[in-house]
Amino acid sequence: MRFTFDGKAIPAEPGQSIGAALIAAGHRSWRRTRIDAAPRGIFCGIGICHDCLVTVDGAANRRACLVEAAEDMRVTTQEGAGRAELEC
């Protein structure tokens, strides 16, 4: 099974979270924070800390440690709070 992260193919095993698959593929960060634009990835790994937020198929603020990877999912780096399309 494969999904894409910022356009690049990432292999994943069934049941694996997006975050676990990204780490297995050598990625440790996939988000930049709202205030300092600091890179973040998984921290708690169990859905508590919300550090591993990622945009999945256009939907912002998904927890990469909880969302299971699926075939052809489009995962992209999340900038800030995401949802740039709503900014005004």
Binding site: E13, A20, I23, S29, I42, F43, C44, G45, I46, C65
Partner: peptide, 22 residues
Amino acid sequence: TLPGVYTAGGVQALLKGHGVLA
């Protein structure tokens, strides 16, 4: 806050839940 710093439970969850070494 650097990526690569995990909670101990997080590293274990990656391993036990997803078969991935942190």
